[in-house]
Design a protein around this nucleic acid. Structure first.
Lengths: 149, 149
DNA sequence: AAAACATATCTGCTAAGGCGACTATATGAC
DNA sequence: GTCATATAGTCGCCTTAGCAGATATGTTTT
């Protein structure tokens, strides 16, 4: 609110407070792209990202914060577990660009390897010690997941 | 080539040396978005950018350098005049994303104002002192513009 | 040749990003 | 209540971005 305005002289905004520059900056890092690729159409909790990408948890957490700030993902707490999923950005144009970016990522070998690893983690959880107690990935839904299962 | 590899642990690359992160970073600045919006399907020389955007020439030049580095624009020198135009990035996915980004920018009021100003500069050059001697914007072409006119 | 013009690059500064390491916070198990 | 677990946030450092102002470089004009 009372923050210093962006240094660029005019900020491209569509829906109130949606920052196009932020959106692109959010996509300008390979770790964040890998996170988005893993989420895809699913909702994942943080420990999956840590396990699949083999990166330190604070690092993953920090990048997820960037993605939240850009309005590209949202978080849902379930007890001590934090679930993340991609959310269409507030701006329709950005939402379409994001959709297309994800389709593009799908074709990348390294991204495919990450997704394959996620598949393994889901099918053979015994091989992933850190994921033993973790909630399994689920289809991302727009509404709040109900407690009862 | 022998440069320090990017600090992120895996860099998403498709066609050799195309940097996806660079591509998105290039779009993550309002000045650069305005430059791209002005180019659109045309080839413009630097003084048009300076005049329409009312920004210092060194600043414009720096941002154009970022866009060149990202493989999003290319420059053509004609005597002392430098002409810039958007070029499809080496990666087909990025090219499509860029095309869509430009379509998206077209809808923005501020971007429309910039383009309107460019239109005026073309129709009534007398009102733009700095553009008196400048080559008029032309349709961007893939091949090198011939000298003879 | 020098001067003017167009443009790229550099400098020094500030701000932001990205990292590893560490710490704070919230929840659940005991 | 304490302890363990999951995760967000901070610190200090280093790198990169973005800026204004200055300067270097190439071309054209005089």
């Amino acid at each position: 609110m009372a923050k210093k305005p962006p240094r660029s002289n005019s900020s491209l905004t569509r829906p109130a407070h949606f920052k196009v520059e932020r959106f692109f900056q959010a996509l300008g890092d390979s770790t964040r792209l890998r996170l988005l690729n893993l989420m895809g159409d699913q909702e994942l909790c943080v420990c999956y990202f840590v396990e699949i990408l083999k990166q330190a948890q604070p690092k993953i957490s920090r990048h997820l914060a960037y993605l939240r700030r850009a309005g590209v993902v949202e978080a849902r707490r379930e007890g001590k577990w934090m679930h993340y999923r991609i959310t269409p950005p507030a701006d329709a144009g950005a939402a379409e660009l994001l959709r297309q970016t994800l389709a593009w990522l799908k074709q990348d070998r390294a991204m495919q390897a990450d997704r394959a690893r996620l598949g393994k983690a889901c099918c053979t959880p015994a091989k992933f010690t850190a994921l033993q107690a973790a909630p399994a990935p689920s289809a991302a839904a727009r509404t709040r997941r109900r407690k009862a299962r």
